[in-house]
Every structure is written in structure tokens, then in C-alpha cells.
Nucleic acid binder design. Structure first.
Lengths: 195, 195
DNA sequence: TTTGATTTTGAGCGACCGTTCAAGTTAAAA
DNA sequence: TTTTAACTTGAACGGTCGCTCAAAATCAAA
């Protein structure tokens, strides 16, 4: 009883994550955030505790968004590998200009907080490990479906996928020669099937 | 005539680059730098102009160090591909704990300054493009030496190399499962020869 | 309509940022 | 030895940082 919150938490976290994703944690000021999410310091600190608190929630939300995006592609593909491929294509090619960065926010976080004593570094490790677990489950299922051989383990497929995916996104963060992306994605999945 | 500079510029730039490499540009304060390179603000600004000036020189120096490191491995290998492989192994496996970061400083820079209007973003693009040019020349030579087929271009070899190398370094930035690195490097070079 | 718990506001705090510059120190030239 | 231009020092400046909190605004319950 009394007053009700006026901001939509989901929307605020989304807007904050877009800004953090673009600029990184340290280069984003609380004034930048105030403008982006249209909230005053008092409300922000009542709702999220600190700049780091808002970042933590933003990064977790980003991970959830990415996972549901993958689920979407899997739902409209007849194979798991095909779904993953559609996901990779959409991220590397289509979204190149409408995303805040070509590079995964999770990877950017893991790069920015490189020293082991930072709590945000630990958070990035946790979320990356969780993502890898999900990938492993997907590749296990792909093997059961006879989409992929059993010559290597599901974990090795997941590792290969992450190395390639992260490598590609980093490479195409450079603005030139984006036209090479389809060929390199073809190559990635051709190699995946030959592992 | 008058006084002579007391600091060794090479050593100072090296120490600064180690700190910038570890913490990134924004998270490194000028006080951090003062301690690391043992210079007072006045001397730093007389010698480098600004924090950004010192960073620019650090990043360029890092690139030179990396290139001369590659030259060293090439000189002690009988093949170009073998030299590149020794370089990759030394960076991904051996140097994991004695380098400020598992991730290439050039890649970290390219990730940190993601917006196109930043001059440091342009610098990272220039240095990355220069590195790719050098790689292309190496792969051209490897093709002439019949180490690699002509089925794909030297540029495609260079692109594949960079995607794999960056992907691997990013993946092994996570502290766990480093023991998988040799196998994944084997895989990388096995795939390279099959392109 | 009044009450009162809750949320929002934004001025402003102390700390730290990148940077400056007057004063002190140094050593080659005179 | 004196001069003097170049280098080093470190206190301190204006600005921005993350964050606080008293006051105003809001709205369900009484």
C-alpha cells in the first residue's frame, strides 16, 4: 500500500544492457545510464543497489535473451545443427548493424574484467559455463539424431562451436570485408560435420 | 645542452603496455601508470602528451613485440606453418600465466573501443589490418613452399588463422580445462591444411 | 478526504579522474 | 665556476565519477 513503481523493470534492464554492451562497464557512466533508462539516481539505486548491480542484471538478462533467441531458431528448424547455423548467420551477418556490438556481450565482459579478483569476472565465467552446458546438451541431442558423428564428444563440438563463433564475431567486428562472412560460416559448419 | 632524460623510454612503454594489456584503457588510471612506470605526471605528459598518447605508443609497441616474436619462431622452424604453430602453442599454452591476459592486447583494444568515432578504435583497426597483411605474406610464401595447397587463397588462410587464434585465446581465457588446448591446436592446424 | 507507506526527484557530497605548471634539480656549454 | 636550457617533481586544479538523502510526489487504505 502506498505508491507503485512507475518504470518497467524489463525495459529498463534491456536499455541498460544495450548501453553496457556497446560501451563496456567502465566507459559507461551513471549519467549515461540515467539518460538511457530515463531514471534518476535515487530510483536506480533503490532498484538495483549500484552501477554494478544494474550491470549484473543486464548481463544475466542478455544471456537469457540470447538463449531464447537460440530456442526460437531451433523451433523453426528441422535439425539442431540447422538451428544453430541460422542463429550464427543472424548474429554475424544480419544483426551486424542493429546490435550495439558485433561481439557477444558475455565475451566482452570476460575480456574487460580480466583479473581474477573481480566479482564481475566470476559472473562472466558462470554465465559462459552455463551457456557451454546448454550447448553440450544440444550437441548430445544432435548426435542422438544422427546429425553428427560420435567420433568426438558433444563437449568437443561445443568447444569448437564457441571458438569458431567467438572468432568469427571478433573478426567481423572490423568493418571491412563483411561479404566474406557467409563463406566462412559455410566453412565453419562444414568443418563441424567433419570433426 | 642542459639535462638528459633519466627514464628508458623502451622500458617505460613496455611496463605501460603490460598494465594497459591487463586492465584495459579505461580501467587504468594515471596514478596506476605512475606507479607502474615510476614517473611523475609532469614527465609522463612531457614525454607522451596524454594518457591516450602513452596508450597509443604501448599498443604499437605491443604489435612490434608480437611480430618480432613470430619472426623468432619462424627463424627456428624449418617451415612457415611450423613456426606459426610454435607461436600459437607458446601463446596459448605456455604464456597463459606469465602474460597480463590470455587475450591479444590488439583484440582487447578492438573490443574496448567499439564505437567508430573513437580514434583508438581506428588505431586498433590499422594495426590489425597490418598484422593481417603480414600473415597473408607468410601464407603466400607457405604456398610457394608447397606447405599448403592453392585450393584457397593466402588471404583465406590468414582469415582462418585469425579466427581460430582469437577464438582459442578467448576460450582459454577461462581458467578451467586448459589441458584441452594442445588437442584444439592440433585440430586447428589439421583443419588449416585441409582448407 | 485524510492518512501514511512507498517511490521519485535532483541537488550535492566526497573521491578520484586526467592534466597543468611553478619550483627544484640536473648537467652540458660557456 | 657560472650559466642556462632541459628535465623532474608533486601540489593542486577543474571536472566527472559513483552515490546519498532530504524533500516532493504518488496512491492504496482508512
Amino acid at each position: 500500500m502506498a505508491n507503485k513503481v512507475k518504470f518497467e523493470r524489463d525495459k529498463v534492464v534491456y536499455l541498460a544492457s544495450q548501453l553496457f554492451w556497446q560501451k563496456g562497464f567502465h566507459a559507461t557512466s551513471t549519467r549515461d545510464l540515467q539518460d538511457a533508462i530515463n531514471m534518476r539516481p535515487g530510483s536506480i539505486y533503490a532498484a538495483f543497489g549500484s552501477k554494478e548491480g544494474l550491470y549484473r542484471e543486464s548481463l544475466k538478462d542478455y544471456t537469457l535473451q540470447m538463449q531464447s533467441q537460440i530456442q526460437g531458431f531451433l523451433a523453426t528448424s528441422d535439425t539442431i545443427v540447422g538451428g544453430l547455423r541460422a542463429f550464427v548467420e543472424s548474429v554475424v551477418i544480419a544483426k551486424k548493424d542493429c546490435n550495439p556490438s558485433a561481439i557477444c556481450m558475455l565475451v566482452k565482459a570476460n575480456n574487460e574484467f580480466a583479473t581474477k579478483d573481480e566479482t564481475l569476472y566470476e559472473l562472466s565465467l558462470d554465465l559462459l559455463a552455463q551457456f557451454e552446458s546448454d550447448l553440450i546438451e544440444l550437441f548430445k541431442q544432435a548426435q542422438l539424431n544422427n546429425e553428427l558423428s560420435n567420433a568426438v564428444t558433444a563437449q568437443e563440438y561445443a568447444q569448437f562451436f564457441q571458438v569458431q563463433f567467438t572468432g568469427l564475431r571478433g573478426y567481423f567486428n572490423r568493418p571491412n570485408n563483411i561479404h566474406l562472412a557467409p563463406k566462412m560460416i559455410n566453412q565453419m559448419f562444414a568443418l563441424l560435420r567433419k570433426l
